[in-house]
Computed example of a mutant assay.
Amino acid sequence: MRTDRNHTRLDRVFARLDREPERPALVGMPRMSRHRMVLFGATLAFYVAIVWAVLITSWLVRLDWQVMFFRPYQQWPELHAFVDYYVVLGQRGPTAVMVAAWLGWRSWRQHTLRPLLALGVSLLLLNVTVGAAKYGMGRLGPHYATEIGSNEMWLGGDIFPSGHTANAVVTWGILAYLASTPRARRWLSALSAVTSLGVGLSTVYIGTHWLSDVVLGWAAGLLILLALPWFEPVIARAEDRVFDLRDRWRARRGRTAPAVGPVARPVVLEPLTDRAGPAPEPVSPGRPVRPPVYLAPGPHTTRAERSPVSPAGSRRPPHPERHPRGTTSATRP
């Protein structure tokens, strides 16, 4: 009786991955379209507006102080254990390792370096832009505030914008950016938005960031994702350069050099005057030198002096007085 195996959901997932093409050529790379340009301009204007609202100590700064005095970690203490673990999704080290492992497997599967290079470019832009804004404006966090109602700017801090929030937007949003189908891109965009939103609110809950820090971190991460199509030519050139270096290294490694040994010099044999036969010809330099033939010690005769051997019959010399076996002579001596 034949029984069919019931395939689990994991088997179906791996079966679908096995059908994935090795270097898909029809994957639509995001371009800097008009729609994306409008989004980039609107996000940049929102970014500047948030910074200006904090600089002039507007209603946004007053909202920051109200949320800080509300102390969410004291209002809902039962969430503290969960939030401590959830906020790790915004830390650069663990999230970069997890996403790089997935994108590395995908790069190996599809024989392309674009996923890893796109991740590297996005993290580089994140470090440069967010790091420069943090240390340039130097805002202090809620735990280190010095004056109630002030914006705490240019006092040596490094929390504006929120690095956790911006890192969550970029790290998880790069998965949506590199999605191969529109449906996957929509689902991953929604998932990354919810994850980054939760990470930002977690930092406000713990009290490490102002609410305006989180809002500016969302805008900073979104600006990086929207600007990535400008860097696609750089990513393509870097990928071609890496593959070119790999091909050269493989060609250099696969080229087998001939084994270098002692060079055989041409040997000229002098003619032998005490032996019969013509003198051997000298060995030309281009002809390979044969190993010497081992000869037993003792005198040797030439081929002409040896007794001829008939091709058929016995190798013993003929004996006229010997009779073949099975016959008896008439008289015995």
Rank of each mutant, 00 (worst) to 15 (best):
I56C: 03
H35S: 14
V99H: 07
L55F: 11
D11M: 09
A193L: 15
R34W: 14
P320K: 06
H209D: 02
H80M: 14
A42L: 15
A276I: 01
A220I: 06
T171E: 12
P182N: 12
W59S: 10
M153C: 00
P258D: 04
A101N: 09
W230Y: 13
P311V: 08
G136M: 09
Y294R: 14
Q74A: 15
L201K: 01
A219I: 05
M137L: 13
V97W: 09
L175Q: 05
G221L: 04
Q110D: 10
V260I: 02
T195I: 14
F46H: 01
R316D: 11
H209R: 05
G221I: 06
T43D: 05
V61E: 04
P72V: 01
R34F: 06
A257M: 06
V61M: 03
P266I: 07
R2H: 10
I148D: 03
R290S: 10
L201E: 02
F160T: 02
D11G: 02
L178A: 06
R2I: 08
A227K: 10
Y47W: 10
S196I: 00
V260K: 02
M98I: 15
T43K: 01
A81Q: 13
W59I: 10
T195D: 07
R31V: 08
L269T: 05
F14G: 01
W108Y: 10
P308C: 05
I56S: 09
P233K: 06
L269Q: 13
P324S: 14
R275H: 06
H111P: 00
W154M: 13
P299C: 04
G120E: 01
V169G: 00
M137S: 01
E270R: 11
A45I: 07
T302G: 13
S58W: 11
R303C: 04
L228Y: 11
R250Q: 10
T112H: 00
G217W: 12
T328G: 13
A227C: 07
L188R: 06
A184C: 00
H300I: 01
D4I: 07
A193R: 01
R265F: 09
W76D: 03
L178K: 02
L269P: 11
A145E: 00
R9L: 14
R34Q: 07
L126E: 08
T3H: 12
R106L: 15
W108E: 00
W59G: 03
S212R: 04
P161L: 02
G313C: 06
T57V: 11
R19A: 15
A133V: 14
G286M: 09
I235Y: 05
S307A: 12
Y47M: 09
V242M: 15
G163M: 04
W105A: 14
R23N: 15
V128D: 04
Y135H: 14
H323I: 14
R106G: 04
G207P: 08
E152I: 03
R246Q: 12
V268D: 09
P229V: 02
A45D: 01
F14T: 15
D4V: 02
G298Q: 11
V130E: 11
L17R: 09
R250L: 03
E147R: 13
D158Q: 12
A25P: 00
P262M: 07
L272F: 10
S329K: 04
G298K: 09
P285H: 03
A15I: 11
G326S: 13
V121T: 12
F69V: 05
F160S: 02
Q75C: 00
A176I: 02
L60E: 05
S192F: 10
L188F: 10
V289F: 13
T181E: 13
V48W: 03
L175S: 08
